[in-house]
């Protein structure tokens, strides 16, 4: 089952956040804690980390989109084991 990449609670006010850019793309494998997407308020960027290891299956919000806390930025299909991350189709 896919795990959502959510907009974390980064602001104490209701200042709008924008998606600055995706640092990964659909199909790419990431480790837990890898930076996957960058958010922006005027003058400051914030890196959102992957909530789990897996493969990015979709990027829901594109660069420039305004987002709020709790919104789904994208989805990760978790890998079953650590070894899956090392899997190489050419092996």
């Amino acid at each position: 089952m896919s795990t959502p990449i959510l907009v974390p609670s980064v602001n104490s006010s209701s200042q709008p956040l924008k998606v600055s850019l995706w640092l990964t793309h659909a199909g790419e494998e990431v480790a837990s804690g890898d930076r996957v997407v960058e958010l922006l308020i005027p003058g400051v960027t914030f890196d959102v980390e992957a909530p789990c290891a897996g493969r990015i299956v979709s990027c829901e919000c594109q660069a420039g989109a305004e987002v709020t806390t709790g919104m789904v930025l994208g989805w990760i299909e978790p890998l079953n084991s650590e070894t899956d991350l090392d899997w190489n189709p050419e092996d």
Binding site: V10, S12, G43, F46
Partner: peptide, 10 residues
């Protein structure tokens, strides 16, 4: 501190 607290602090 949140992102906006940091921004306001600066």
């Amino acid at each position: 501190l949140g992102m906006d607290d940091f921004q306001n602090g600066l």
